[in-house]
Deep mutational scan, measured.
Amino acid sequence: MDVFMKGLSKAKEGVVAAAEKTKQGVAEAAGKTKEGVLYVGSKTKEGVVHGVATVAEKTKEQVTNVGGAVVTGVTAVAQKTVEGAGSIAAATGFVKKDQLGKNEEGAPQEGILEDMPVDPDNEAYEMPSEEGYQDYEPEA
């Protein structure tokens, strides 16, 4: 019985440690998101679009440190934060509304985080759909 109880105690310690790591990862992701939003706020009209992409990228980098179902929630929060940063930029006159959601080359930025393969159960990952990809044929 002692062996059984000791095993359960060790398992509990492992769960607590994993929860603490997840909590730490979420806190880091939130900190990076805040950094990115402050970065966007300090940019001029020309830099705002690039700044919004930076927020998304920093958040995406930190999301990889967070495991399990938390990833889905962090990704949703990050996307809403990026959308909010863009709205703030438009409201303050840093950028025109028609410039939001495009990178410096004018290509749409939507789907940055949505296409990231995420499995809350950590069982399997699927690649994003290939609808947006084109076949590449090298020139002879």
Rank of each mutant, 00 (worst) to 15 (best):
D119Y: 08
P108A: 13
A56K: 02
A140P: 15
P138D: 05
V49Y: 04
P117V: 07
Y136A: 14
Q134Y: 07
K60S: 01
F94V: 07
A29W: 13
S129C: 11
G31H: 01
K97D: 15
A140Y: 00
V3W: 02
N122D: 05
G73H: 08
A56D: 00
Y125G: 05
A76E: 12
L38P: 00
T64N: 06
E123H: 08
P117S: 05
A78H: 15
L100K: 03
G47P: 01
A56N: 03
F94G: 13
Y125W: 14
E114K: 12
A107K: 09
E126R: 12
A107M: 13
G36W: 03
Q62C: 08
G41V: 10
A56Q: 04
D119E: 07
Y136H: 09
Q79I: 12
Y39T: 11
E139M: 11
E137S: 09
K21H: 12
A76W: 05
M5T: 01
V118Y: 13
V49G: 04
A85Q: 02
V70L: 12
E131V: 12
I112T: 07
E139H: 12
S42R: 01
G93R: 05
K23P: 00
E20I: 07
G14A: 08
Q79C: 12
K97Y: 01
T59V: 14
E139V: 13
V3N: 04
K21W: 12
K32G: 02
S42G: 08
M1N: 00
K10T: 11
Y39H: 05
V40L: 08
V37C: 04
K60L: 14
Q99K: 02
N122L: 01
Q109V: 07
E61Q: 09
N103Y: 06
G84M: 13
L100W: 02
E110W: 10
A85I: 07
V77H: 02
K45G: 06
E13V: 01
K80G: 12
E13K: 01
A17M: 14
I112R: 12
V82I: 03
V82T: 14
A76D: 05
A76M: 10
E83Q: 07
G14E: 11
K80S: 03
G31C: 03
P117A: 10
T44K: 02
K97M: 09
E13S: 01
Q99A: 09
T44Q: 01
A29H: 04
M5Y: 01
K45V: 13
G25T: 14
N65D: 07
G101L: 14
A29T: 08
E131C: 08
G84K: 08
V55N: 00
V37T: 00
G93A: 15
E105C: 02
Q24T: 05
V37G: 01
K45N: 05
E137V: 08
V63R: 07
T92C: 03
K80F: 14
K45P: 06
E110F: 14
E28C: 05
V118T: 03
T33S: 09
K45I: 02
D135A: 11
G86L: 14
Y133Q: 14
P120C: 13
A30Y: 10
Y125D: 06
K21T: 13
Y39W: 13
L113K: 13
L38W: 08
T75A: 13
S42F: 06
A30L: 15
K32C: 01
Y136V: 10
G36D: 02
G106M: 07
A124F: 11
T81C: 08
P128S: 09
K102W: 09
N65S: 06
